[in-house]
Simulated assay, not measured.
Amino acid sequence: MSLQLKPIHHRGQQPYQPSFRVNHSFISLLPNCHLLNGKRGVSIDGSVRPLGLLLNDRRRRRNGGGGGGLSYRSIVASGIAGAPISDGSKPDKGFVSPPLSDILWPSAGAFAAMAMLGKMDQILAPKGLSMTIAPLGAVCAILFAAPSSPAARKYNMFMAQIGCAAIGVLAFTLLGPGWLARSSALAASMAFMIYTGSTHPPAASLPLMFIDGAKMQHLNFWYALFPGAAGCVLLCFIQEIVVYLKEKFKF
Score class of each variant (00 low, 15 high):
residue 37 N to H: 09
residue 38 G to Q: 02
residue 38 G to A: 02
residue 40 R to Y: 03
residue 41 G to T: 00
residue 42 V to K: 00
residue 42 V to N: 00
residue 42 V to H: 01
residue 42 V to F: 01
residue 42 V to R: 00
residue 44 I to R: 05
residue 47 S to N: 11
residue 48 V to M: 07
residue 48 V to E: 06
residue 48 V to C: 10
residue 49 R to G: 01
residue 49 R to S: 09
residue 49 R to E: 07
residue 50 P to W: 01
residue 51 L to R: 02
residue 52 G to L: 01
residue 52 G to K: 00
residue 52 G to W: 03
residue 52 G to A: 02
residue 53 L to H: 11
residue 55 L to G: 01
residue 56 N to K: 05
residue 57 D to A: 08
residue 58 R to P: 08
residue 59 R to Q: 13
residue 60 R to C: 15
residue 62 R to Y: 04
residue 63 N to L: 15
residue 63 N to S: 15
residue 64 G to M: 10
residue 64 G to L: 11
residue 65 G to N: 11
residue 65 G to S: 13
residue 67 G to Q: 11
residue 67 G to E: 09
residue 69 G to K: 09
residue 69 G to N: 12
residue 70 L to K: 12
residue 70 L to C: 08
residue 71 S to K: 09
residue 71 S to T: 05
residue 72 Y to G: 14
residue 72 Y to S: 13
residue 72 Y to L: 12
residue 73 R to H: 00
residue 75 I to L: 05
residue 75 I to C: 12
residue 77 A to Y: 00
residue 79 G to N: 05
residue 82 G to M: 03
residue 82 G to D: 03
residue 82 G to N: 04
residue 83 A to P: 01
residue 84 P to A: 15
residue 84 P to G: 15
residue 84 P to S: 12
residue 84 P to C: 14
residue 85 I to E: 13
residue 86 S to R: 04
residue 86 S to F: 06
residue 86 S to K: 04
residue 86 S to V: 02
residue 86 S to G: 02
residue 88 G to W: 07
residue 88 G to H: 01
residue 88 G to K: 06
residue 90 K to P: 01
residue 90 K to H: 02
residue 91 P to H: 12
residue 91 P to S: 10
residue 91 P to Q: 13
residue 92 D to L: 14
residue 92 D to V: 13
residue 92 D to T: 07
residue 93 K to D: 12
residue 93 K to G: 10
residue 94 G to V: 06
residue 95 F to S: 11
residue 95 F to D: 05
residue 96 V to R: 09
residue 97 S to Q: 08
residue 100 L to H: 07
residue 100 L to M: 10
residue 100 L to E: 06
residue 101 S to P: 00
residue 101 S to R: 01
residue 102 D to K: 03
residue 102 D to W: 04
residue 103 I to E: 00
residue 105 W to V: 02
residue 105 W to L: 02
residue 106 P to K: 05
residue 108 A to T: 10
residue 109 G to P: 06
residue 112 A to Y: 07
residue 112 A to F: 11
residue 114 M to Q: 12
residue 114 M to T: 09
residue 115 A to D: 04
residue 116 M to A: 12
residue 116 M to C: 15
residue 116 M to Y: 11
residue 117 L to F: 08
residue 118 G to E: 03
residue 118 G to Q: 02
residue 119 K to A: 10
residue 122 Q to D: 09
residue 123 I to N: 08
residue 123 I to M: 10
residue 124 L to E: 03
residue 124 L to Q: 04
residue 124 L to V: 07
residue 125 A to Y: 03
residue 125 A to W: 06
residue 125 A to P: 10
residue 126 P to N: 15
residue 128 G to K: 14
residue 128 G to N: 10
residue 130 S to L: 07
residue 130 S to A: 04
residue 130 S to F: 08
residue 131 M to W: 10
residue 132 T to W: 00
residue 133 I to S: 08
residue 133 I to C: 13
residue 134 A to F: 10
residue 135 P to F: 12
residue 136 L to Q: 13
residue 138 A to Q: 15
residue 138 A to E: 11
residue 138 A to T: 13
